[in-house]
Every structure is written in structure tokens, then in C-alpha cells.
Nucleic acid binder design. Structure first.
Lengths: 211, 211
DNA sequence: ACCTGAACACCGTTCAAGT
DNA sequence: ACCTGAACACCGTTCAAGT
């Protein structure tokens, strides 16, 4: 049974998510949310302990949207499905997504998302004691890549590749000179993500064979 | 020659860094910095374009502290040195460090830090066109791991491993049940980071041999 | 039980004014 | 050139009060 209180809370979190995507995380304020749902700012404290609690619920909302992979799939395809789902969410909620990396992977929502990854690694034949660490390596890559991509770390800051190196003495960056025009090529981010996953599946396989 | 203006700017960024580490990024305000350096908040606009610009300078300050690896070292040891230096900085500046992942890897400071990584990958025999992508994979792991570690994503949120799974129906997380007590063991983060690096060196080697 | 109003101690930033 | 003061439009949160 869904109470009126739960429904209002869900509306509050939904408004917070929309505000974040429309105006960035800085636009998520209790006052703005209150105005949007037709309450005074203080009334929100009946639903949420404070702003930190609200942000935790925002994280929980994102995690709740991650579908578990089809258990009939090969372990490889299950890992790939999870990774692609996470990156897809980063593209859907680019401004909220970085919270996943900064805030504690707090229970129980995170536990539910991680479980299929543990299962896939176990099914791959990874020794039990290596599973948690390998899961952290895998999810660190997936989250880190997605955050870098949508957060702009991989971007050029709106500059040409050429002007990007304008402020630097070429003598200080010899390897950039060795790479030359390779650095000016446009990047296919989908392909690079998939290539990273392919390499990580190789890592998993080798961990499974104790190399 | 260092002008008085440059010195004051450097002081401003230093105060910002200290405020961030003492009270978190939320404690970094133009008004607090101004009070600390003995100016009115508006006087800061003579040194900094605004708060965003200040945060960019904070990132630049961190990047300027990353020492280039000894070029006499093997490519492997150069990659390891860079990775350990980055993680060490995360431990020194745990509250400021996450900015590195969220903000654009903006020039020219970031370029100078990346150059030794490009050099190491080239010396390893990685084909030119694979170098930038492999560098992004490597630095994504290093930054992502360090941010997760100091930011608390890898942490338990202050809860016992046991109570961590209290709010979850065991039937919903079968792989957690399969792993059992393995999940309750304490983690040696140094060892896990090194293990991740070891695995990534393997990835680099295979990229160098075109596998 | 659920909500409001006023208040407190903060923000970043603009603008006009001072020396 | 460098800095100040006042003002504007915001914050999160506490507390006492309303219905």
C-alpha cells in the first residue's frame, strides 16, 4: 500500500531530479523544490531530514532505475548489460549521475545493483576472495568513465585540440609531440567504452584462471 | 619575476585549499577566503573571475603538485609512480581531490601531467592510435579508485558489514549469500590498488602486442 | 499530524563610490 | 590600480506558532 506521504516524498525527489537536470546540482534547493510542489520550505522537513538526506534519496532513485540483467545471459553479457545500463543512465541524467561516485554506495539500493555483478564474476570462475575487489575495479571503470564523459573531464573545455596545447611549451610535453595528429582525431566514445569493457573482460578471465 | 598580485593570488588559492580540507568544499566561499586574507569579498574579484574560476585554480594547484616520474625508470615503473602519486594526493587532499574527476581536465596543467603517461605507453610499444584511449582507461581507474576510497563510496557508511545487509531481503541478493563471510573481511586498500595496477599493466602489455 | 511565518546566519555577484 | 559599502537575490535550518 502506498501512503499519501510516500507519494508526496516521491514527488519531491522527482522534482529534485528535474531541477538538477535542468539547472545543475546547484539548482537543487529545498526552497525551489518547495515552491514547485506548493509547500513552504519548512514543510519539506516532514518528508526529508534535510538536504543531505534529499541527495541520498536522489541517489537511491537513480539506483532504483537500474534494471537487473537477464539471468539467462552468459556472464560476459550480464557484465556488459550492467555496464551499458549504468553508462546509459549517465547520459539520461548527466548532472545527477556524478553523485553516484562521490556519495557512499549506501544500502540497500546499491547492494541490489551490485549483486548481479557478484553473480557474474562468480559464474565466470573468479575465486570468491577476488570477487569484491574485481567488482570494485569494474564499477570504478564504468562509473569513472561515465562521469568523466558527461562531466566534461574527457572534453576539451570548448577549445580546439590545437589551441588546447597553445599555452604549453612543446618542449615540456614531448610525448604529445610524438603522438602528433593522433591527438587531434575525434573520439568515438561508444567504441572506446566498449573497448575498455572488452579489456576488462580479459582481466576477469585471467582472474578466473588465477593468472 | 613574481609580482605582488601573483603572490596574493597564490595565497588566496592556498587559503581556499585549507578551507576545503578543514571544512569540506562547501566551506570554500569567497566571503570566508576574504575574511582570512583580510580583504572584503569584492576585492577577490581583482584576482579571480568568480567562484568557478577559483575552483579551476584549485584544481591547477593540485595538478602542479604532481611530480613527473623519473624518466630513467622502466615504463612500468613510470606508470606505477604516476598512479601512486595521484592516489597519494587524494590521501593528502581528500576533500578537494574529487574536483579532478568532475571538472574538465583543463590546460595546460593537465596536459603536463598526462604527458609522462603518453610517453610510458609509447615506450611500452602501444600503437599510437591506442595511446590516448588507454591513458584515459588508466587514469579513470586511478582517479576513480582514489575518489571512491577517500569519498567513501567504498566505505560502509559507518555500518557493520552485518547491519549493512539488514535492510535487504537475502532472497533479493543471492550472490551476496554465495559470497558469505568473504564480504565481511576487512579490505587492504593499498593491496587492492596495487592489484588493480598490476592488472592494468597486463592490459597495456596486451595492447602493445596487439591482442 | 501537518503545515506556516519569522528569523538567523549564511551565499555569489553587481554596481557605484572611494582613494 | 586597487579596494570598499550597500544592495540584490538567493541559501539551509531552527523555533515557535497555527489548525
Amino acid at each position: 500500500m502506498v501512503t499519501a506521504k510516500q507519494e508526496r516524498l516521491s514527488e519531491i525527489v522527482g522534482v529534485a531530479l528535474r531541477l538538477a537536470e535542468d539547472g545543475g546540482l546547484a539548482a537543487v534547493s529545498l526552497r525551489a523544490i518547495a515552491a514547485e510542489v506548493g509547500l513552504t520550505p519548512m514543510a519539506l522537513y516532514g518528508y526529508v531530514r534535510g538536504k543531505d538526506d534529499l541527495l541520498d534519496r536522489l541517489v537511491a532513485r537513480l539506483l532504483s532505475e537500474v534494471a537487473a540483467p537477464d539471468p539467462a545471459l552468459d556472464w560476459r553479457d550480464r557484465l556488459l548489460a550492467c555496464a551499458r545500463a549504468a553508462r546509459g543512465m549517465a547520459h539520461r541524467y548527466p548532472r545527477t549521475f556524478p553523485l553516484l561516485l562521490t556519495r557512499p554506495a549506501v544500502l540497500p539500493d546499491a547492494v541490489r545493483v551490485v549483486d548481479p555483478l557478484y553473480a557474474a564474476l562468480l559464474d565466470a570462475g573468479v575465486p570468491q576472495e577476488d570477487v569484491p575487489g574485481l567488482e570494485r575495479m569494474f564499477s570504478t571503470f564504468v562509473l569513472g568513465f561515465a562521469v568523466s564523459e558527461v562531466g566534461g573531464r574527457f572534453g576539451t573545455g570548448g577549445l580546439d585540440p590545437a589551441e588546447r596545447r597553445a599555452g604549453v611549451d612543446p618542449a615540456d610535453v614531448p610525448a604529445h609531440r610524438r603522438l602528433g595528429e593522433v591527438l587531434d582525431r575525434p573520439v568515438d566514445w561508444d567504441a572506446e567504452f566498449e573497448e575498455g569493457l572488452r579489456r576488462l573482460l580479459g582481466v576477469v578471465e585471467r582472474a578466473a584462471h588465477r593468472e
